[in-house]
Amino acid sequence: MISAIGEVLLGKEHQVRLALACLLARGHLLIEDLPGMGKTTLAEALARSFGLGFKRVSFTSDLLPADLTGLNVFDPAAASFHFQPGPLFSQVLLADEINRASPRTQSALLEAMAAGRVSVDGTSHPLPRPFLVIATQNGLDQGGTSALPESQLDRFLMRLSLGYPPRQAERALLQGEGLRPDGITHAFGPDDLLQLQERCDRQHCSGALLDYVLDLLERSRRQPFQGHPLSPRAGLALVAAARAWSLLEGRDHVIPDDVQAVLAAVCEHRMDGGQRGDTDRELSQRLQEGVDGLR
């Protein structure tokens, strides 16, 4: 399946894997890149390969929370209000350019992501399962944006950046060899995804591995001025993502390599507080080098 998505997204196998791991770990994905790098394509391909319902919302500055969650509409025929679900009620929601929306709208989305339910006028409506938000945002230096605060960045399991494709892949793209996302025939259904997610939870984490993760967390807290310390939630996210990664690797247990594979995607945005430094991947790389990986 990775190869199927990989055909859509030429030359981005690692990112595809990470996105898939994110999906398996029930996490939400933040893709940060310049326009035109294939963010939307990735999201759509992910959704289609599991046959998931897919909706896309372009966040603009005048998007209201109710536009996302839906609202109670007065039904003159029944003379009562009935709930009209918004685009949030889909299995995969692509939130395009999330940083263009107002903070209020952002927080409404993120609350829904965290709780798995939406409250409108005092009634709470459960969201469908599986539920995955793939948010994209442009580089922050563009005007007219409100950056996601740290507390909300924490709700995204991973932050990816796609980057430019390698030359070879770009050539294939220009030659038109890339697949269109709607060309993917889904081999799995949503139920398979739920099963896989459950299998993820059963991936074995030995004491030695947890020690490794704990050392990483501790190291991030010992590091003065080198970024925000990692929260316990970050630790949970790291383990969950590593579990999903080990499943993708075809193992039934997690090894430090899995943790290292997802470390940058999971931890970088939690450590740099949403302000990506000039040198990419520096913090997580430094963190990884500060902890003995031989366990």
């Binding site: 090894i255 430090p256 390599d257 290292q260 990884q288 080098e289 500060g290 990986g293 031989l294």
Partner: peptide
């Protein structure tokens, strides 16, 4: 046992780098 093996490699001039995992080494 791992440490013994690592020492044997260290004598040959190969030591794990910072943060390197066993598979990477």
């Amino acid at each position: 046992e791992l440490e013994r093996t690592l020492r044997a490699f260290a004598r040959q001039g190969m030591a794990p780098q910072a943060g390197e995992t066993l598979a990477g080494f």
